[in-house]
């Protein structure tokens, strides 16, 4: 499989009054066409900033750097804002966590769907409208023609997220990044949206990067998983392998937090990971998870850990691993 996206050494740094925040620290990602990669981690682990960095949508103060950033055979390492804007909404698309606020309240759904197409493909509005209508129907919105004239406040959250998906699909992107697309939605709607995303991915042959903190979602949709902690990938691998043999104490902790009906005795407590993520500010040494890790040793505070292979494409950033 030829790689659609190849990123190595991706870093995002943000200056703060307390010092430099190393929000993303040397992240490597590779994704093939039609493949689904799940980025997993707690709030503030850098997964959303990783996605924004890939899109070129970082906040103004943030600085992005990478030793390699190739998309569909094109080197984007030094691509300017103009080139990134040409790709965004065209070859690269993104949907966000908050469908309620991600649509502009002042413009009709139709107008907001059409403008991306008009920007990248040009031509007449009629063609854009036809495409918008087709996609609204495709994402399962009934009465699509009538919806085009409606405004965001007239639609429910689930409908708005469907509109966002249709909007991202307008120019048939090669890569779609979905940042917690179902977090703000009802559980029943969540399942529908995920199912739809997978279906559309197959239909369009898109690469999909799905960002989530919900391992239940990961198990259902991912081909591969990358677990992030404090701006780094601490473990990654094929979903089956990672779920069957989680190697990093953090990954194991996350898996222990999922309630599994039948496996958990009534009244038994769910697993928790004690402590909170310490913000990666200033000079960082050793493993950032060590303060919350039951298996931490002295060397964890001083040694620099690299991602190393555990067989296949399963990789781990921890002193453990061989023991398992």
């Amino acid at each position: 499989m030829t790689a659609l996206l190849q990123v190595e050494g991706l870093r995002v740094e943000i200056p703060t009054p307390m010092g430099r925040l190393h929000a993303v620290r040397g992240v490597d990602l590779a994704l093939g066409a039609g493949e689904t990669l799940c980025l997993v981690g707690e709030s503030g682990c850098g997964k959303s900033l990783t996605a924004l960095a890939l899109m070129g949508l970082l906040p103004r103060a943030a600085r992005r750097s990478a030793t390699r950033f190739a998309f569909a055979g094109e080197d984007l390492q030094r691509a300017g804002e103009r080139r990134m804007a040409d790709l965004r909404g065209n070859r690269l698309a993104m949907i966000f966590q908050e469908p309620m606020t991600s649509l502009n309240p002042s413009w009709s759904i139709g107008n907001q769907l059409e403008e991306g197409w008009l920007r990248h493909r040009g031509g007449h509005r009629a063609a854009a409208r036809e495409r918008a209508l087709h996609l609204l129907e495709r994402v399962g919105i009934t009465g699509a023609a009538q919806r085009l004239g409606q405004y965001p406040h007239e639609l429910s959250g689930g409908l708005r997220q469907r509109v966002m998906i249709a909007m991202a699909l307008m120019c048939a992107p090669a890569l779609m990044i979905a940042d917690e697309p179902t977090t703000a939605l009802d559980v029943t709607v969540q399942a529908q949206i995920l199912h739809l995303l997978k279906e559309l991915q197959r239909e369009f042959g898109m690469g999909l990067i799905l960002i989530t903190h919900d391992l239940g979602i990961v198990a259902r949709v991912a081909d591969r998983v990358a677990v992030m902690y404090a701006g780094e990938i601490v473990e990654q691998g094929p979903v089956a392998q990672l779920f069957a043999r989680p190697a990093h104490p953090y990954t194991r902790g996350l898996l222990a937090c999922i309630p599994v009906p039948g496996r958990l005795a009534p009244g038994e407590r769910l697993g928790t990971i004690p402590g909170v993520v310490s913000p990666p500010i200033g000079t960082l040494t050793g493993c950032q998870f060590r303060n919350r890790c039951a298996e931490a040793e002295d060397q964890c505070a001083t040694r620099a850990f690299e991602l190393r292979g555990l067989g296949g494409s399963h990789r781990l950033r921890c002193r453990l691993g061989n023991a398992i």
């Binding site: 949508l57 804007a85 649509l103 909007m167």
Partner: peptide, 12 residues
Amino acid sequence: DYIRTARAKGLR
């Protein structure tokens, strides 16, 4: 958020 969406569409 909707300004981010607009930029995500690659609008000028």
